[in-house]
Design a protein around this nucleic acid. Structure first.
Length: 592
RNA sequence: GCGGCGGUAGUUAAGCUGGUUAUAACGCCGGCCUGUCACGCCGGAGGCCGCGGGUUCGAGUCCCGUCCGCCGCGCCA
């Protein structure tokens, strides 16, 4: 008789009563009452209670004395209803239990470094060292499952839309533009290196030139930059590209894809189409190109109002290249003087020198700077902040980065204190009309905001031709933002060699230089390139938001730490000198 | 590269301005217990106070360095 399972630990219900079942799983807990022993058997489907009764199965009960947490067991037994009053309503299998008639220990376990059940409070480092144990916890299993569901929707949906899944190489040519590459030395070609892809950008465009028309890939990408809570050095993106695409056609496909994902994975219906916001508006109203629109609490730009103000704090901030911004706190009027002082401390923690407040109550609007501002200034302020009765306005004047960080901290604190419910749990927005170039002081030239293959906005091509006001040239580029996270970005690409040359000239990149870096690609452009465009979605971040977690680690099976280490495998590691030799590499002597 | 916070039994934490034998909870081990489900009760074991230096009669505690974790800045076309 083979010890295979007939059921999983999560599926037994009252309807199975009377059946003989075979179960396998881990010991979640053993409760030994002396004369009677209970074992909670766990697998990824759930937990079921197994009963060992010395009256009926004395030898099994004796054997069970040896059982400890996380042993792997095989149990054969009969499903029985639980006695009156013994039903566990917390558990879906709580109305039944399995009375064991056979029991085998398939595998023993040493005492674990931390417990699997409940929300274990082991430190991050310990959990990462024993990631395989952490992954036994239902919480992480749920996240991985949810991620899997998202993938299956993507494959199904894009297949229906005629997209073709095509793999592109991991070993690529290094392009020093943009993020740092992970390099792989070539053994057969001394002194030469491969680079792991930062994204399959050029390949997907080449596939359009090949006539594949609609491409997608769930692609692993690598960037050798420092990590954040939402950033890993290797990450997964849904990479896609379409021939004859317009931004609108891409938006439509993405919106329907997200509607499908949220419906299937979370059973949540999201509103489409997504709202759009220009880059300029995002920066003015929200001080960021990835605004969190779950609350209607923008970080409004107020500098204009105070151009000629006599209030020294504001005028000095402005003359020091600072800015004045404010945020509306709904229902914030109830804050006491003391509470506002506490908020001020938070802003000071972010580097702000102070916080100006403004309250709108039934009778009047008052502020901490009534006597310094003209009635005109005060009423403009009130209307720009869109203060409603009962609201509080908080204003910070400082360097842009300080003003933004302070107000963001204030807003988050107030959301928490006032328990402000989000207007919408999932706030998508397209950010459009990004600038094509940004001035780089270090290199004293314009550099691409997105990448040098981005199509300029048709209305701005003349500026490009005349080389005037290049900072204001817009790109046909867009980001998809969800709840303050940039979850995707893309563009319409250049398909005309003349425009491509013009861009290179503007970027002060010589044809020769470009030939060396992207020669094959520029050549390909010449042989009949369809207009095309695409987008890449950061699937780890999407999975993170779907899971309701703030850490990207929680949706990746084997993540790296913030210093890009794998604590479990202890990598990266040193290698055998012979390996280095084969690769024609020598290590630098460490500095003394 | 930089800033903030943290590192003390297996685990999570407490340990105030330096001073007897470094606490607690959970876990672990042993005993008792037939309806538990975070079982209960009794008893016990368990410490390189991250690592290396220094100050001091004396350091978990103060100083310097270093490693690791988390959060952020720079960086991430």
């Amino acid at each position: 008789m083979s010890q295979t399972r007939s059921h999983t630990c999560g599926e037994l219900r009252l309807e199975h009563v009377g059946q003989d079942v075979q179960l396998t799983g881990w010991v979640n807990r053993r409760r030994d009452l002396g004369g009677l022993t209970f074992i909670d058997l766990r697998d990824r489907y759930g937990i079921v209670q197994v009963v060992l009764d010395p009256q009926t199965v004395p030898e099994l009960h004796a054997k069970s004395q040896e059982i400890r947490s996380e042993f792997v067991l095989f149990v054969k037994g009969k499903v029985s209803p639980r006695p009156e009053g013994m039903i566990n309503k917390e558990r879906v299998t709580g109305e039944i239990e399995v009375h064991a008639s056979e029991l085998d220990i398939l595998s023993k376990a040493e005492v674990l470094p931390f417990t699997i059940h409940e929300e274990t409070d082991a430190t991050e480092a310990l959990k990462l060292k024993y990631r395989y144990l952490d992954l036994r916890r239902p919480h992480l299993q749920r996240n991985l499952l949810l991620r899997h569901k998202m993938y299956s929707v993507i494959h199904r949906y894009l297949d229906q839309k005629n997209f073709v899944e095509i793999e592109t190489p991991f070993l690529n040519k290094s392009t020093p533009e943009g993020a740092r590459d992970y390099l792989v030395p070539s053994r057969v070609h001394p002194g030469k290196f491969w680079a792991l892809p930062q994204s399959p950008q050029l390949f997907k465009q080449l596939l359009m030139m090949s006539g594949m028309d609609r491409y997608y890939q769930i692609a692993r990408c690598f960037r050798d930059e420092d990590l954040r809570a939402d950033r890993q050095p290797e990450f997964t993106q849904l990479d896609m590209e379409m021939s004859f695409a317009t931004p609108e056609s891409i938006f439509k496909i993405m919106e329907a894809l997200f509607a499908d994902i949220f419906q299937t994975v979370l059973d949540v219906t999201i509103q489409t189409p997504f709202p759009q916001m220009s880059y300029e508006e995002a920066m003015t109203s929200h001080a960021t190109d990835k605004p969190d629109l779950r609350w209607d609490m923008p970080l409004t730009q107020l500098s204009q109002v105070f151009k000629n103000t006599s209030f020294r704090v504001f005028s000095e901030a402005l003359s020091n290249h600072g800015e004045i911004r404010g945020v509306r706190i709904p229902k914030g009027e109830s804050f006491s003087r003391k509470q506002i002082d506490q908020l001020t401390l938070i802003a000071k923690g972010c580097g702000a020198k102070g916080v100006v407040w403004m309250k709108k109550s039934q009778e009047k609007t008052s502020s901490s700077i009534d006597k310094f501002l003209s009635p005109d200034e005060l009423s403009t302020l009130e209307s720009l902040l869109k203060l409603e009765e009962g609201d509080l306005g908080l204003i910070v004047a400082d360097q842009p980065s300080v003003a933004r960080a302070s107000l963001e901290a204030l807003r988050n604190e107030c959301i928490e204190r006032l328990e402000l419910k989000p207007k919408r749990p999932f706030a998508f927005t397209w950010v459009v009309d990004f600038p094509l170039f940004v001035w780089d002081d270090d290199e004293s030239r314009f550099v691409s905001v997105h990448h040098p293959f981005t199509q300029p906005h048709p209305e701005d091509v003349s500026k490009l031709k005349n080389g005037e006001d290049l900072g204001s040239v817009r790109a046909l580029a867009y980001d998809l933002v969800l709840n303050g996270y940039e979850i995707g970005g893309g563009s319409i690409r250049i398909h005309q060699p003349e425009i491509q040359s013009m861009i290179f000239q503007t970027l002060k990149l010589t044809e020769e230089d470009m030939k060396h870096k992207f020669g094959f690609f520029l050549e390909a452009l010449k042989y009949g390139t369809p207009p095309h465009g695409g987008i890449a979605l950061g699937l780890d971040r999407v999975a993170m938001i779907l899971s309701g977690t703030q850490a990207i680690r929680d949706v990746i099976a084997f993540p790296k730490t913030q210093s890009a280490l794998d604590l479990m495998a202890e990598s990266p590691s040193t290698v055998d000198p012979r390996q280095l030799d084969e690769l024609h590499l020598a290590l630098k002597k460490p500095k003394a």
